[in-house]
Amino acid sequence: MFEARLVQGSLLKKILEATKDLLTEATFDCSSTGMSLQAMDSSHVSLVSLMLRSDGFDAYRCDRNLSMGINLTSMTKIIKCSSNDDVVTIKADDNNPDTVTFMFESPNQEKVSDFEMKLMDLDTEHLGIPETDYSVVVKMPAQEFQRVCRDMSQIGESVTICCTKDGIRFSASGDLGTGNIKIAQSANVDKEEEAVVIEMQEAVTLTFALRYLNFFTRATSLSGQVSLSMSPEVPLVVEYKIADMGYMRYYLAPKIED
């Protein structure tokens, strides 16, 4: 028996929005520690890693480990049938392993819906991601990062991110010219969410495809802050924390000079 109840049901809508450009199907792995998902996009350039810890749910029961192969387009259709203030419960019965049920309850309990969705047999590859001490970790407002990625993609297909102790610089070039956006580390801010904080061991310069970074910024509604972790010649990690529950992380392989 698997049952996970989430009072903040709209969180699932935000999570699906944050994966929709990269994934069409994925396996949700459920265990006593929580629900997780790891999946690469079809070109194997980026990876989505989601963690929702069991203690972040309002009720959680997982008697045995369970892998649910889910068509995310179908799940999105079903989750759209919930209202933003609905309580969502995800249920899977050991006696009926080919389906998962989503139950939506209105806050006053007057409307209760349930939708049973067919599961898929997915042959998923899991990547072993080594623990890494990154050379640079930048924390910045998620909306600011979204804006930078959008603006840079007006100029070119790639962005070069250069991070020093003074700040982080985003540069793009294309047929129309070049663009640079430099964001300095915050001197002091009242609100933690508005801060730009740079933890640096060594300066790093890396180049990434803006197409993917813009896909990642679909997660902006999940968190006020985003963190970018970089080391020379390894994939970038873009992380949005999901309050009290876990995270949505994206890994992106860099572009290298020919």
Partner: peptide, 14 residues
């Protein structure tokens, strides 16, 4: 010019 690398260049399949 830059070439896009893949995640399998960095991470191993479990």
């Amino acid at each position: 010019d830059h070439t896009q690398t893949k995640l399998s260049d960095y991470f191993k399949v479990k």
